[in-house]
Design a protein around this nucleic acid. Structure first.
Lengths: 214, 214
DNA sequence: GAATTAAATGAACGGTCGTTTTATTCTCTG
DNA sequence: CAGAGAATAAAACGACCGTTCATTTAATTC
């Protein structure tokens, strides 16, 4: 046999990306073989090389598109006004929403950077840094205007990123909480973490469930 | 040749563990070959099988000992008094100190669980859960006594764990900040995150430092 | 409907993998 | 100082790896 009936390059390429994300997220990049990937797609391993020159370039494409999507998502969600509270609020919600919606590529992005060649790694880290810079700028604005009380902008940014990215480690969409509820709780935690002034216009107040005063 | 002069089983076994942690942390479990590990130790690959029955059992041993060490470390650091503030404080500092001191095994523990067989994975997750349960209990105590203001104990515990474990992703001991300074800042962030009452005995105040550059 | 292009096959390549087997050398015990 | 057993080397095992190649078939074009 050779070309199969109904075969379509675009559809196959999309299927390869999706299957690769799933397999790499589950078993890891090194543990996924090209034969295994081919089987998941429903194609011989050799056919994969019509779409990607080699295995690492496939990984790089997946990582690059994840980062491009993340940056584009933030560009769309970023508020027009330069308000630290509103900006941080939007950042946290967008970050959690994006990553929960793309669990597979998020896992790959978090775990498989070490499998990239130095050149490709640099390219990804550059994108990641430009994204994280957005958060640092928000925090710096908030610290300067007095909206936030922050010890160290760099450390706080890393802490927030780790915290809100960590959602995907345990979150399952079909369980106790919806994405919105989780995002809401994480939003409240973030605001307390940065020492945000309690009352701020346009932001939903943290829903205190346990005992509290203030 | 065969047995080399000065060879010693115990020393070789320790060298294998250390080398394996280093190589797995850097390249990943799947990417590390037994020949590569042997070379790092200064031994033929076949000699490794005197100490570990196979590759996965080696990984499992490393993970198990990491978790045992973490739990033992917390047992030693846990305050006698049932004080939420003091307990949380000790938990954060111990967690960061332990993980920074063992970067390699921490990386392995965070990234390589997926390479374990189901039975071994269950054993590790059981240990991890019992450790995290300690934090949840502290948070629950604090919420009940009014020391903390917490929306959701489970979510807050995960957020804190992710945040303080994330230190090892970026922390380098020879740079700007010492472990103690980092732990201090993370401690302050954690306390704000859980809505700890502002004034509490025995807690050092957060050291305000100028905001860092991008 | 023939020619061309796109898509995929199946076999094969040289290597490397984890692991086993066998043989040898060294250290330790009595 | 002889013997036992621990520690290692060296070679080999079959399986699988990423990748290439010539070929075949399906879809498209003229």
């Amino acid at each position: 046999m050779a070309r199969t009936t109904g075969s379509d390059g675009e559809r196959t390429e999309a299927a390869i990306r999706e299957a690769a994300l799933k397999l790499i997220a589950r078993h890891g990049y090194e543990a996924m073989s090209m034969r295994q990937l081919g089987e998941e797609v429903g194609v011989q391993a050799a056919a994969l090389y019509r779409y990607f020159p080699n295995k690492e370039e496939l990984l790089f494409t997946l990582l690059r598109e994840h980062m491009e999507g993340l940056i584009a998502s933030w560009d769309a969600a970023r508020p027009a006004a330069r308000d630290p509270f509103g900006s941080l609020s939007a950042f946290v919600r967008n970050h959690i929403g994006f990553h929960v919606a793309r669990r597979h590529s998020t896992h790959v992005s978090n775990l498989e950077l070490r499998s990239l060649s130095p050149a490709n790694l640099t390219a990804i880290l550059r994108m990641r840094n430009s994204y994280e810079k957005e958060l640092r700028q928000i925090l710096r604005d908030g610290a300067e205007t007095g909206a936030f009380a922050i010890d160290d902008v760099g450390l706080t940014a890393m802490a927030i990123i780790q915290m809100i990215t960590g959602v995907i480690v345990w979150f399952r969409p079909d369980e106790r909480l919806s994405v919105e509820e989780v995002a809401e709780t994480y939003h409240a935690m973030t605001m307390r973490l940065v020492g945000a002034a309690e009352i701020s216009a346009g932001a939903s107040p943290p829903a205190r469930r346990a005992t509290s005063e203030n």
